[in-house]
Amino acid sequence: MGDALPAGATKKVFFHVGAPKTGTTYLQQVLFQNREALADDGVLYPYEFFDESFRSMQDFRGASWGQKGPGYYAGEWEKVASRARDWTGSTVIISNELLGGSSPDRIAAGVASVQPADVHVIFSARDFARQLVSDWQEHVKHKHRVTLEQFVDDLVEKGLDAPPPFGELFWGMHDAAYVLQRWATVVPPENIHLVTVPQPGAPRDTLWQRFCHVTGLDPDAYETETKRSNTSMGVAETELIRRMNEDARSIRDDDYDRLVRIVLAERILGGQSPRLTLPPDRLEWVSQRSRQLIDELKGAGYQVEGDLEELMPDPATHATYVSPTALTEADLAPAAIRAAQGLLRHSAMLRSKVRELQEQADLRPVHKPTSRDRARDFYWRNRGRVGRVLRKMGLLRR
Protein backbone atom coordinates (compact mmCIF):
# COMPACT_ATOMS: atom_id res chain seq x y z
CA MET A 1 0.00 0.00 0.00
CA GLY A 2 2.96 2.31 -0.48
CA ASP A 3 5.40 3.66 2.06
CA ALA A 4 3.67 4.70 5.28
CA LEU A 5 3.38 8.41 6.02
CA PRO A 6 5.40 9.89 8.87
CA ALA A 7 3.52 10.17 12.13
CA GLY A 8 1.16 13.14 12.13
CA ALA A 9 1.36 13.70 8.37
CA THR A 10 -1.76 13.77 6.19
CA LYS A 11 -1.88 12.23 2.74
CA LYS A 12 -2.89 14.42 -0.17
CA VAL A 13 -5.92 13.47 -2.23
CA PHE A 14 -6.12 15.16 -5.64
CA PHE A 15 -9.47 15.36 -7.45
CA HIS A 16 -8.73 15.94 -11.16
CA VAL A 17 -12.19 17.14 -12.24
CA GLY A 18 -11.90 18.27 -15.85
CA ALA A 19 -12.32 19.81 -18.22
CA PRO A 20 -13.24 17.37 -20.98
CA LYS A 21 -11.12 17.61 -24.16
CA THR A 22 -8.07 18.98 -22.32
CA GLY A 23 -5.84 15.90 -22.44
CA THR A 24 -7.67 14.19 -19.58
CA THR A 25 -7.90 10.83 -21.37
CA TYR A 26 -4.17 10.85 -22.02
CA LEU A 27 -3.36 11.66 -18.38
CA GLN A 28 -5.69 8.91 -17.19
CA GLN A 29 -4.08 6.39 -19.54
CA VAL A 30 -0.60 7.25 -18.26
CA LEU A 31 -1.70 7.02 -14.63
CA PHE A 32 -3.54 3.74 -15.17
CA GLN A 33 -0.72 1.96 -17.00
CA ASN A 34 1.77 3.10 -14.31
CA ARG A 35 -0.39 2.38 -11.27
CA GLU A 36 1.96 -0.34 -9.92
CA ALA A 37 5.02 1.90 -10.24
CA LEU A 38 3.06 4.77 -8.71
CA ALA A 39 2.03 2.57 -5.79
CA ASP A 40 5.68 1.69 -5.17
CA ASP A 41 6.30 5.44 -4.89
CA GLY A 42 3.46 5.92 -2.41
CA VAL A 43 0.92 7.18 -4.97
CA LEU A 44 -2.47 5.50 -5.40
CA TYR A 45 -4.43 5.67 -8.65
CA PRO A 46 -7.47 3.91 -7.19
CA TYR A 47 -8.99 2.12 -10.20
CA GLU A 48 -8.71 -1.62 -10.80
CA PHE A 49 -9.95 -1.36 -14.40
CA PHE A 50 -9.94 1.64 -16.74
CA ASP A 51 -13.71 2.20 -16.89
CA GLU A 52 -13.97 2.27 -13.10
CA SER A 53 -13.13 5.98 -13.32
CA PHE A 54 -16.33 6.57 -15.29
CA ARG A 55 -18.49 4.25 -13.20
CA SER A 56 -17.41 5.77 -9.89
CA MET A 57 -17.86 9.31 -11.29
CA GLN A 58 -21.47 8.51 -12.20
CA ASP A 59 -22.14 7.35 -8.65
CA PHE A 60 -20.28 10.37 -7.19
CA ARG A 61 -22.55 12.70 -9.19
CA GLY A 62 -25.72 10.62 -8.90
CA ALA A 63 -26.09 11.09 -12.64
CA SER A 64 -27.97 9.19 -15.35
CA TRP A 65 -26.31 7.93 -18.54
CA GLY A 66 -28.33 6.86 -21.56
CA GLN A 67 -30.90 4.31 -20.42
CA LYS A 68 -29.12 3.83 -17.08
CA GLY A 69 -30.76 5.71 -14.21
CA PRO A 70 -28.94 7.52 -11.38
CA GLY A 71 -28.96 4.41 -9.19
CA TYR A 72 -27.40 2.09 -11.76
CA TYR A 73 -23.84 2.66 -10.51
CA ALA A 74 -24.68 2.74 -6.81
CA GLY A 75 -21.73 1.65 -4.65
CA GLU A 76 -19.07 2.32 -7.30
CA TRP A 77 -17.82 5.53 -5.69
CA GLU A 78 -17.57 3.96 -2.23
CA LYS A 79 -15.17 1.33 -3.62
CA VAL A 80 -12.84 4.10 -4.78
CA ALA A 81 -13.32 6.22 -1.65
CA SER A 82 -12.56 3.29 0.65
CA ARG A 83 -9.30 2.62 -1.19
CA ALA A 84 -8.38 6.28 -0.78
CA ARG A 85 -9.18 6.20 2.94
CA ASP A 86 -7.19 3.01 3.50
CA TRP A 87 -4.11 4.14 1.54
CA THR A 88 -1.10 4.62 3.80
CA GLY A 89 1.07 6.26 1.16
CA SER A 90 1.52 9.98 0.57
CA THR A 91 -0.81 10.65 -2.36
CA VAL A 92 -4.08 9.62 -4.01
CA ILE A 93 -5.05 10.84 -7.49
CA ILE A 94 -8.72 10.57 -8.49
CA SER A 95 -9.44 11.56 -12.08
CA ASN A 96 -12.50 11.94 -14.24
CA GLU A 97 -13.25 14.91 -16.49
CA LEU A 98 -16.98 14.86 -15.70
CA LEU A 99 -16.51 15.27 -11.94
CA GLY A 100 -16.40 19.02 -12.55
CA GLY A 101 -20.14 18.99 -13.22
CA SER A 102 -21.00 17.74 -9.73
CA SER A 103 -23.48 19.66 -7.58
CA PRO A 104 -22.23 21.35 -4.36
CA ASP A 105 -23.89 18.78 -2.11
CA ARG A 106 -22.31 15.91 -4.05
CA ILE A 107 -18.92 17.61 -3.90
CA ALA A 108 -19.23 18.01 -0.13
CA ALA A 109 -20.22 14.36 0.33
CA GLY A 110 -17.47 13.13 -1.98
CA VAL A 111 -14.72 15.14 -0.28
CA ALA A 112 -15.94 14.03 3.15
CA SER A 113 -15.82 10.38 2.04
CA VAL A 114 -12.01 10.39 1.60
CA GLN A 115 -11.19 12.02 4.95
CA PRO A 116 -8.86 12.34 6.73
CA ALA A 117 -6.89 13.94 3.90
CA ASP A 118 -5.44 17.17 2.57
CA VAL A 119 -7.76 17.55 -0.42
CA HIS A 120 -6.69 19.38 -3.60
CA VAL A 121 -8.56 20.01 -6.85
CA ILE A 122 -6.99 20.08 -10.33
CA PHE A 123 -8.75 21.59 -13.34
CA SER A 124 -7.06 21.56 -16.76
CA ALA A 125 -8.35 24.33 -19.03
CA ARG A 126 -8.05 25.13 -22.73
CA ASP A 127 -9.19 28.19 -24.68
CA PHE A 128 -12.91 28.41 -25.44
CA ALA A 129 -12.47 28.53 -29.24
CA ARG A 130 -10.88 25.08 -29.36
CA GLN A 131 -13.19 23.78 -26.64
CA LEU A 132 -16.38 24.77 -28.47
CA VAL A 133 -15.56 22.88 -31.67
CA SER A 134 -14.13 19.88 -29.77
CA ASP A 135 -17.24 19.66 -27.61
CA TRP A 136 -19.48 19.77 -30.69
CA GLN A 137 -17.54 16.87 -32.17
CA GLU A 138 -17.90 14.92 -28.93
CA HIS A 139 -21.67 15.42 -28.96
CA VAL A 140 -21.81 14.23 -32.58
CA LYS A 141 -20.02 11.05 -31.44
CA HIS A 142 -22.86 10.56 -28.95
CA LYS A 143 -25.74 10.56 -31.50
CA HIS A 144 -26.53 14.29 -31.60
CA ARG A 145 -27.50 15.96 -34.88
CA VAL A 146 -27.13 19.71 -34.21
CA THR A 147 -24.99 21.61 -36.72
CA LEU A 148 -21.78 23.28 -35.61
CA GLU A 149 -23.09 26.76 -36.37
CA GLN A 150 -26.31 26.20 -34.41
CA PHE A 151 -24.41 24.62 -31.53
CA VAL A 152 -22.05 27.59 -31.18
CA ASP A 153 -24.81 30.19 -31.70
CA ASP A 154 -26.95 28.68 -28.94
CA LEU A 155 -24.07 28.51 -26.46
CA VAL A 156 -22.97 32.08 -27.20
CA GLU A 157 -26.43 33.63 -27.15
CA LYS A 158 -28.14 31.56 -24.42
CA GLY A 159 -25.30 30.40 -22.18
CA LEU A 160 -26.41 27.85 -19.59
CA ASP A 161 -29.94 28.11 -21.02
CA ALA A 162 -28.87 26.72 -24.40
CA PRO A 163 -30.97 23.69 -25.46
CA PRO A 164 -30.27 20.70 -23.21
CA PRO A 165 -27.96 19.02 -22.73
CA PHE A 166 -25.56 21.43 -24.43
CA GLY A 167 -25.76 24.48 -22.16
CA GLU A 168 -25.08 22.68 -18.90
CA LEU A 169 -22.61 20.22 -20.43
CA PHE A 170 -20.50 22.97 -21.98
CA TRP A 171 -20.59 25.94 -19.61
CA GLY A 172 -21.09 23.65 -16.61
CA MET A 173 -18.04 21.53 -17.49
CA HIS A 174 -15.65 23.77 -19.47
CA ASP A 175 -15.96 27.18 -17.81
CA ALA A 176 -13.17 27.08 -15.20
CA ALA A 177 -14.60 29.93 -13.13
CA TYR A 178 -18.07 28.37 -12.99
CA VAL A 179 -16.82 24.85 -12.19
CA LEU A 180 -14.23 25.81 -9.59
CA GLN A 181 -16.58 28.19 -7.81
CA ARG A 182 -18.63 25.14 -6.81
CA TRP A 183 -15.58 23.16 -5.66
CA ALA A 184 -14.30 26.19 -3.75
CA THR A 185 -17.31 25.94 -1.41
CA VAL A 186 -15.67 22.80 0.01
CA VAL A 187 -11.95 23.05 -0.88
CA PRO A 188 -9.98 26.23 -0.03
CA PRO A 189 -8.84 28.27 -3.05
CA GLU A 190 -5.15 27.76 -2.20
CA ASN A 191 -5.72 24.01 -2.70
CA ILE A 192 -7.30 24.49 -6.14
CA HIS A 193 -4.91 24.19 -9.09
CA LEU A 194 -5.63 25.44 -12.59
CA VAL A 195 -3.45 23.78 -15.23
CA THR A 196 -3.54 25.56 -18.59
CA VAL A 197 -3.26 23.60 -21.83
CA PRO A 198 -0.75 25.28 -24.14
CA GLN A 199 -1.50 26.47 -27.64
CA PRO A 200 -0.39 24.24 -30.56
CA GLY A 201 3.36 24.09 -31.04
CA ALA A 202 4.33 23.59 -27.40
CA PRO A 203 6.44 20.54 -26.45
CA ARG A 204 4.34 17.38 -26.47
CA ASP A 205 4.92 16.60 -22.80
CA THR A 206 4.01 20.06 -21.49
CA LEU A 207 0.67 19.00 -20.01
CA TRP A 208 2.21 15.94 -18.30
CA GLN A 209 5.03 18.07 -16.88
CA ARG A 210 2.56 20.58 -15.46
CA PHE A 211 0.31 17.88 -14.02
CA CYS A 212 3.30 16.25 -12.32
CA HIS A 213 4.46 19.57 -10.86
CA VAL A 214 1.07 19.97 -9.17
CA THR A 215 0.82 16.41 -7.87
CA GLY A 216 4.48 16.02 -6.88
CA LEU A 217 5.19 13.20 -9.34
CA ASP A 218 8.55 12.78 -11.05
CA PRO A 219 7.62 13.32 -14.74
CA ASP A 220 10.57 11.23 -15.94
CA ALA A 221 9.91 8.21 -13.71
CA TYR A 222 6.99 6.71 -15.62
CA GLU A 223 6.15 5.35 -19.07
CA THR A 224 4.22 8.06 -20.92
CA GLU A 225 3.66 6.37 -24.28
CA THR A 226 0.07 5.17 -24.50
CA LYS A 227 -1.71 2.71 -26.78
CA ARG A 228 -5.19 4.20 -26.60
CA SER A 229 -5.98 7.65 -27.93
CA ASN A 230 -9.01 9.90 -28.23
CA THR A 231 -8.46 10.82 -31.88
CA SER A 232 -9.94 14.06 -33.22
CA MET A 233 -11.71 13.92 -36.56
CA GLY A 234 -11.63 16.55 -39.27
CA VAL A 235 -14.50 18.56 -40.73
CA ALA A 236 -15.68 15.94 -43.25
CA GLU A 237 -15.44 12.96 -40.89
CA THR A 238 -17.42 14.71 -38.15
CA GLU A 239 -20.10 15.94 -40.55
CA LEU A 240 -20.41 12.46 -42.06
CA ILE A 241 -21.26 10.99 -38.66
CA ARG A 242 -23.60 13.88 -37.84
CA ARG A 243 -25.63 13.14 -40.99
CA MET A 244 -25.51 9.39 -40.33
CA ASN A 245 -27.02 10.09 -36.90
CA GLU A 246 -30.31 10.96 -38.59
CA ASP A 247 -30.80 7.22 -39.12
CA ALA A 248 -29.07 6.02 -35.95
CA ARG A 249 -31.72 6.93 -33.39
CA SER A 250 -33.02 3.36 -33.12
CA ILE A 251 -29.58 1.90 -32.30
CA ARG A 252 -29.13 1.06 -28.62
CA ASP A 253 -26.82 3.54 -26.90
CA ASP A 254 -24.33 0.85 -25.83
CA ASP A 255 -24.14 -0.55 -29.37
CA TYR A 256 -23.80 2.93 -30.89
CA ASP A 257 -21.05 3.88 -28.45
CA ARG A 258 -19.01 0.82 -29.30
CA LEU A 259 -19.56 0.83 -33.06
CA VAL A 260 -19.68 4.53 -33.92
CA ARG A 261 -17.73 6.41 -31.24
CA ILE A 262 -14.94 3.90 -30.69
CA VAL A 263 -14.67 1.87 -33.90
CA LEU A 264 -15.79 4.29 -36.61
CA ALA A 265 -14.82 7.71 -35.22
CA GLU A 266 -11.67 6.89 -33.28
CA ARG A 267 -10.21 3.88 -35.10
CA ILE A 268 -11.32 4.15 -38.72
CA LEU A 269 -11.97 7.74 -39.77
CA GLY A 270 -9.32 9.79 -37.99
CA GLY A 271 -8.73 13.35 -39.16
CA GLN A 272 -7.68 13.35 -42.81
CA SER A 273 -9.82 16.35 -43.80
CA PRO A 274 -9.22 19.96 -42.62
CA ARG A 275 -9.52 20.36 -38.87
CA LEU A 276 -12.49 21.95 -37.20
CA THR A 277 -12.28 25.66 -36.41
CA LEU A 278 -14.61 28.19 -34.82
CA PRO A 279 -17.11 30.01 -37.09
CA PRO A 280 -15.34 33.34 -37.80
CA ASP A 281 -18.27 35.53 -36.75
CA ARG A 282 -17.94 34.20 -33.20
CA LEU A 283 -14.21 34.68 -32.64
CA GLU A 284 -14.52 38.24 -31.30
CA TRP A 285 -17.19 37.23 -28.75
CA VAL A 286 -15.17 34.21 -27.64
CA SER A 287 -12.07 36.38 -27.23
CA GLN A 288 -13.96 38.85 -25.06
CA ARG A 289 -15.44 36.06 -22.95
CA SER A 290 -11.97 34.52 -22.56
CA ARG A 291 -10.54 37.80 -21.28
CA GLN A 292 -13.38 38.00 -18.78
CA LEU A 293 -12.61 34.44 -17.65
CA ILE A 294 -8.93 35.22 -17.14
CA ASP A 295 -9.81 38.24 -14.98
CA GLU A 296 -12.19 36.11 -12.89
CA LEU A 297 -9.55 33.44 -12.34
CA LYS A 298 -6.90 35.99 -11.36
CA GLY A 299 -9.13 37.24 -8.59
CA ALA A 300 -10.12 33.81 -7.27
CA GLY A 301 -6.84 32.94 -5.55
CA TYR A 302 -6.30 29.61 -7.30
CA GLN A 303 -2.85 28.18 -7.95
CA VAL A 304 -2.01 28.46 -11.67
CA GLU A 305 0.32 25.99 -13.38
CA GLY A 306 1.11 27.37 -16.82
CA ASP A 307 0.00 30.76 -18.12
CA LEU A 308 -3.54 32.16 -18.01
CA GLU A 309 -2.85 33.95 -21.30
CA GLU A 310 -2.91 30.51 -22.94
CA LEU A 311 -6.68 30.63 -22.42
CA MET A 312 -6.94 33.38 -25.04
CA PRO A 313 -7.85 32.00 -28.50
CA ASP A 314 -5.13 32.19 -31.13
CA PRO A 315 -6.67 33.89 -34.21
CA ALA A 316 -4.15 32.20 -36.48
CA THR A 317 -5.43 28.79 -35.40
CA HIS A 318 -8.91 29.72 -36.65
CA ALA A 319 -7.92 31.74 -39.70
CA THR A 320 -9.30 29.19 -42.19
CA TYR A 321 -12.90 28.10 -41.71
CA VAL A 322 -14.60 25.21 -43.50
CA SER A 323 -18.29 24.96 -42.66
CA PRO A 324 -19.25 21.31 -42.01
CA THR A 325 -22.87 22.09 -42.87
CA ALA A 326 -21.95 23.44 -46.30
CA LEU A 327 -20.12 20.29 -47.39
CA THR A 328 -21.70 18.43 -50.30
CA GLU A 329 -22.09 14.67 -50.58
CA ALA A 330 -19.13 14.70 -52.97
CA ASP A 331 -17.06 16.43 -50.27
CA LEU A 332 -17.98 13.66 -47.84
CA ALA A 333 -17.32 10.83 -50.30
CA PRO A 334 -13.66 10.11 -49.35
CA ALA A 335 -14.61 9.87 -45.67
CA ALA A 336 -17.65 7.73 -46.51
CA ILE A 337 -15.51 5.30 -48.55
CA ARG A 338 -13.03 4.97 -45.67
CA ALA A 339 -15.94 4.37 -43.30
CA ALA A 340 -17.39 1.63 -45.51
CA GLN A 341 -14.01 -0.05 -45.96
CA GLY A 342 -13.22 0.12 -42.26
CA LEU A 343 -16.59 -1.23 -41.17
CA LEU A 344 -16.27 -4.04 -43.72
CA ARG A 345 -12.92 -5.04 -42.22
CA HIS A 346 -14.40 -4.79 -38.74
CA SER A 347 -17.33 -7.01 -39.74
CA ALA A 348 -14.95 -9.59 -41.25
CA MET A 349 -12.90 -9.58 -38.05
CA LEU A 350 -16.02 -10.19 -35.95
CA ARG A 351 -17.15 -13.06 -38.20
CA SER A 352 -13.69 -14.60 -37.92
CA LYS A 353 -13.92 -14.45 -34.14
CA VAL A 354 -17.35 -16.07 -34.21
CA ARG A 355 -16.04 -18.92 -36.37
CA GLU A 356 -13.07 -19.38 -34.03
CA LEU A 357 -15.36 -19.61 -31.00
CA GLN A 358 -17.62 -22.09 -32.82
CA GLU A 359 -14.63 -24.25 -33.71
CA GLN A 360 -13.41 -24.17 -30.12
CA ALA A 361 -16.86 -25.22 -28.93
CA ASP A 362 -16.95 -28.10 -31.42
CA LEU A 363 -13.57 -29.38 -30.20
CA ARG A 364 -14.64 -29.62 -26.56
CA PRO A 365 -14.79 -33.23 -25.36
CA VAL A 366 -18.31 -34.60 -25.32
CA HIS A 367 -19.25 -36.64 -22.27
CA LYS A 368 -20.49 -40.07 -23.33
CA PRO A 369 -23.01 -41.56 -20.86
CA THR A 370 -22.03 -44.84 -19.19
CA SER A 371 -24.40 -47.71 -18.43
CA ARG A 372 -24.56 -46.41 -14.86
CA ASP A 373 -25.57 -42.94 -16.13
CA ARG A 374 -28.31 -44.50 -18.29
CA ALA A 375 -29.62 -46.57 -15.39
CA ARG A 376 -29.77 -43.52 -13.12
CA ASP A 377 -31.55 -41.46 -15.76
CA PHE A 378 -34.04 -44.31 -16.38
CA TYR A 379 -34.76 -44.52 -12.66
CA TRP A 380 -35.52 -40.81 -12.23
CA ARG A 381 -37.64 -40.67 -15.39
CA ASN A 382 -39.75 -43.68 -14.39
CA ARG A 383 -39.69 -43.50 -10.59
CA GLY A 384 -43.21 -42.08 -10.25
CA ARG A 385 -44.72 -44.48 -12.76
CA VAL A 386 -43.16 -47.55 -11.13
CA GLY A 387 -44.37 -46.39 -7.71
CA ARG A 388 -47.97 -46.11 -8.89
CA VAL A 389 -47.89 -49.61 -10.38
CA LEU A 390 -46.44 -51.15 -7.21
CA ARG A 391 -49.03 -49.41 -5.04
CA LYS A 392 -51.85 -50.75 -7.21
CA MET A 393 -50.44 -54.25 -6.83
CA GLY A 394 -50.26 -53.80 -3.04
CA LEU A 395 -46.55 -54.26 -3.04
CA LEU A 396 -45.80 -50.68 -1.85
CA ARG A 397 -47.50 -48.96 1.04
CA ARG A 398 -48.69 -45.41 0.65
Results as ranks from 00 to 15, higher is better:
W285R: 01
A129M: 10
A319Y: 03
A361T: 02
A361K: 07
Q150P: 02
L390Q: 04
H318W: 03
V263Y: 04
R106Q: 11
L332G: 06
G69N: 14
V263G: 02
Y178L: 14
L155A: 04
P334W: 11
V235K: 14
G306A: 05
L363G: 08
S232H: 10
V235L: 11
L207W: 01
D154H: 14
T10V: 11
F170V: 03
R258H: 14
V152K: 01
L297V: 10
R338D: 12
E359G: 00
F60A: 05
F170A: 00
A339F: 03
P46E: 06
T185C: 11
Y178K: 07
G62R: 06
R381Q: 13
L276Y: 11
V214N: 12
T25A: 11
G394Y: 11
D40F: 02
P324C: 07
D307V: 00
G342F: 05
E138L: 04
P200Y: 01
E356Q: 09
I251N: 01
L148T: 05
L148P: 08
H139D: 11
P163Q: 02
D377M: 14
F170M: 05
L332T: 07
R242L: 09
A125Y: 02
R35L: 08
A63R: 15
V17W: 04
K392T: 12
A129G: 02
V152D: 02
S95H: 09
W77M: 08
G23P: 08
P189T: 11
S232N: 06
T88G: 15
Q181N: 12
D41G: 15
V186I: 15
V152I: 09
F15T: 10
D59I: 05
V186N: 09
K141C: 01
L5Q: 12
D377H: 14
A74C: 00
I107G: 08
S102F: 07
A109N: 05
A221D: 07
G234Y: 08
G306P: 05
V186C: 14
D105M: 01
A117F: 07
V179L: 12
R275M: 13
D218A: 07
A39V: 02
V195K: 05
L278I: 11
T231C: 07
G69K: 09
E190C: 00
S371V: 09
Q137E: 12
G301R: 03
L31T: 03
